[in-house]
Amino acid sequence: MGISESLSSRRQLSGGLSGASVVAAALVYLVADLIVKLTGTTVLAFGFRVIGGSLTVGSLLSMVVDGLLVGLAVGLAGIGLSMTYSILDFANFAHGDTVTVGAFLGWVAAYTVAGLGSGAAFADLFLFDTDQQLSVVSAFAPVVVGLVVAGAGTVGVVLVVDRLTYRPMRGSDNISLLIASIGVALALRYLIAFVFGTQTSGVASSGARFQVIPGLSVTDNEIALLVVSVTLMLGVHLLLQRTKLGKAMRAMADNEDLARVTGIPAERVVRLTWILGGALAGIGGFLLVLESGTISFNFGWILLLLIFAAVIVGGIGSIYGAMAGGVLIGLVDSLALIWLPSGLSRAAAFAVLIAVLLLRPSGLFGGVSTA
């Protein structure tokens, strides 16, 4: 090894150690502060709070559950974004608005089914202009129908978009596809705004609350989000590892040219990638609205930043990374409220993104890989 290479190696090592030291110190302080807060103790220095405060165990557990639920939905939506990158090799900026499309399609279907026989006008049901708010307990069948329509309807939308926009550009460079995806995002977002308006609508509320342990309770909608998300993630795992389609998708992600030479039908894999990614995005959007209770024309665009953060933290191109990254980002976004105002909690999620990139630039699951 030459002198210049040795010096470069040492600089990289010292930089990595320095970054790791800063992250480790921050984690130690936050954990210590959290423990002191749980005891209800405050340590002051020169009139300023150095560590501690007040936080109940019940509040902490509620934040953990909220973060886990949001993280699961974000991870579910992130799977499609990660698949698009690994197989089609471009960052799809329309993915957030695809989530919005799925949510609106699903909730329109749910309200329409729930309103059958009630005498309510279809236009009122279509625009959520009723006093009724749905939940899993109070409207199980409509919510299930909405969930299915959210997935199936989004699949139809992404296939049309692919046929009209992305397929003719399949041989173009990544920047061209990225710019095209931004155009698709704007078209979808403002089409939704034109049809449904720009107001935020309340569409879901909890129908029942169940106490898990003293100080911690969950709603029927939150249980539904947990069960559906975990089931779908397990299904994606089995698809990737146990089916020919999953093997073909992993082969396309690893080496597209070699996959084509070995006879893998590339266009069919691409189409199935859109189908799977679109379905998961639509269902993820529907579940997020089910948990939050509100829907708006741009919520998917705002959510896109968290989805990208989850995918990058997990390792862009890795489906398992998207799942793990979603849960991590969701937990950080929720737990940040212990230290930050609600308007700044997203900053904590991106701070974690920066920390992960400093310590492991390829992400937690490292490298471009479908699995």
Results as ranks from 00 to 15, higher is better:
Gly2Pro: 01
Ala310Gln: 07
Gly284Leu: 03
Ser205Met: 00
Glu5Gln: 09
Gly343Thr: 13
Ile312Tyr: 03
Ser345Phe: 00
Leu276Met: 08
Gly300Asp: 08
Leu105Thr: 06
Ser345Tyr: 01
Phe299Ala: 13
Gly153Asp: 12
Ile354Ala: 14
Gly263Gln: 13
Leu344Gln: 03
Val108Cys: 03
Val143Asn: 06
Gly106Gln: 03
Ile213Met: 12
Leu306Pro: 01
Thr273Ala: 10
Arg346Thr: 10
Asp89Trp: 12
Val148Ile: 11
Ser292Arg: 12
Leu30Arg: 00
Ser135Tyr: 04
Phe48Ala: 12
Val64Met: 09
Ala187Pro: 09
Phe90Asp: 02
Val289Thr: 13
Phe140Lys: 02
Asp66Val: 15
Gly314Lys: 02
Asp129Arg: 12
Asp220His: 09
Gln199Thr: 15
Arg189Glu: 11
Tyr190Asp: 06
Ile295Pro: 06
Val161Thr: 11
Glu267Pro: 10
Gly263Trp: 05
Thr262Asn: 15
Pro142Gln: 02
Thr262Gln: 15
Thr56Asn: 06
Leu76Ser: 07
Val212Arg: 09
Ala248Asn: 15
Ala94Val: 13
Ala253Pro: 01
Ser292Asn: 13
Ser318Val: 07
Gly321Gln: 00
Val64Trp: 02
Gly366Val: 13
Ser296Tyr: 01
Ala324Val: 10
Thr165Trp: 01
Ser138Asp: 14
Phe90Gly: 03
Ser362Leu: 12
Val108Phe: 02
Ser54Gln: 02
Leu280Glu: 03
Thr39Val: 03
Leu164His: 06
Tyr190Gly: 04
Thr130Arg: 04
Val218Ser: 11
Ala253Gly: 14
Ala110Cys: 00
Arg10Lys: 02
Ala32Glu: 11
Val70Tyr: 01
Ala26Thr: 15
Val356Leu: 05
Gly67Met: 12
Asp129Gly: 11
Leu38Ala: 06
Ile275Asn: 07
Asp257Gly: 15
Val160His: 05
